[in-house]
Computed example of a mutant assay.
Amino acid sequence: MKAVIFDMDGVIVDSETIHIKMKIQALKEYGIECSPKECMAYFGRSSNAFFSDFIKKASADIPLQEIVARKHQLFLQYASDNGAVEPIDGALDLIKELRSKNIPLALASSSVRYNIEWFLKKFGVFDCFDVILSGAELTESKPNPEIYLLAAQKLGIKPQECVVIEDAEAGIKAAKSAACYCIAYCNPAYKDCGQDASAADMRVNSLKDISIEKIMNI
């Protein structure tokens, strides 16, 4: 394999539970109820996809971009004020080690660009990535393969020669549909969230189990 493409939420940033809380809060402000279980079905997908579905279900007259922007505002406020959002154990070391070996890196996240750049800069790895893509700026959301096909294209490397590191079922399906090799990070903290990682080529319970040698010998 010649390149590595990272998802962000749940792979680099331990943020999935916070995203759920902020989605629920944003919906509540607009008079729509939502449970954590309902949110879990949208792991790895964009906020546009999530809120679009809930607005339709509620037959509500809510501007999509308005509620999406409110959710992102709540999320960043929490991340900035709380200080409890941490990197996934082993993620930063893996990114820096890959960069030190001059392995091309891309970031392909469903989050909005501002949030992506905020976290990458906060953790000191922004400059490690050759390509940074936000699914919020694309036509289709994961599990559509668009974001991974575009990441490979921008890296100048065939999708079949890219390793994708994902944690969500939707992201794994997107990576495999793009013909990438997919490593699923199965976070033990989310083992009861109903995410099916069986389509991945490799599954690990810790990012520390992923070595450069293992990636390059795939």
Results as ranks from 00 to 15, higher is better:
Leu133Glu: 11
Ala49Trp: 04
Asn102Ala: 07
Ala152Pro: 02
Gly44Lys: 07
Asp130His: 14
Cys39Tyr: 15
Leu150Arg: 12
Val112Asn: 13
Asn82Pro: 03
Phe51Asp: 01
Ala84Asn: 14
Arg113Thr: 12
Asp167Ser: 08
Leu64Thr: 08
Arg113Leu: 15
Arg45Lys: 14
Asp89Tyr: 07
Lys122Glu: 11
Tyr30Leu: 02
Gln77Ala: 13
Gln153Gly: 11
Asp53Gly: 07
Leu120Gln: 00
Ala108Gln: 03
Met40Gly: 03
Glu161Phe: 09
Ala106Ser: 10
Ile95His: 02
Asp53Thr: 12
Glu117Gln: 10
Ala84Pro: 02
Ile55Pro: 00
Glu140Gly: 00
Ile67Ala: 04
Ile157Ala: 07
Leu149Ala: 01
Lys121Gln: 14
Asp61Pro: 00
Ile116Cys: 06
Cys39His: 13
Leu92Cys: 06
Asn102Thr: 12
Leu27Met: 13
Lys142Arg: 01
Ser80Asp: 14
Ser110Gln: 08
Phe50Asp: 08
Leu105Glu: 10
Val131Pro: 01
Ile132Asn: 06
Ser35Lys: 07
Ser47Met: 09
Glu161Ala: 05
Leu105Val: 09
Pro143Asn: 05
Arg113Met: 15
Tyr148Ile: 10
Lys57Tyr: 13
Pro63Thr: 02
Glu33Phe: 12
Phe123Gly: 04
Arg45Ile: 13
Gln153Ser: 15
Asn144Thr: 06
Leu27Glu: 10
Ala106Phe: 11
Phe119Tyr: 14
Gly90Ala: 09
Ala79Ile: 00
Phe75Asn: 04
Ile132Glu: 08
Ile157Cys: 07
Gly90Glu: 06
Ile32Ala: 07
Ala170Thr: 07
Ala49His: 10
Phe75Lys: 00
Lys101Ala: 15
Ala69Trp: 08
Cys39Lys: 03
Asp61His: 10
Gly135Thr: 06
Ser52Leu: 11
Ser52Trp: 10
Gly135His: 06
Tyr30Ala: 02
Lys56Arg: 14
Ala79Thr: 08
Glu38Leu: 05
Gly31Phe: 14
Asp53Gln: 09
Ala168Val: 05
Glu38Tyr: 10
Phe54Arg: 12
Pro145Cys: 00
Cys162Glu: 09
Ile95Lys: 01
Pro143Lys: 03
Glu161Pro: 04
Ile103Phe: 08
Ile62Trp: 10
Leu76Arg: 15
Val131Leu: 09
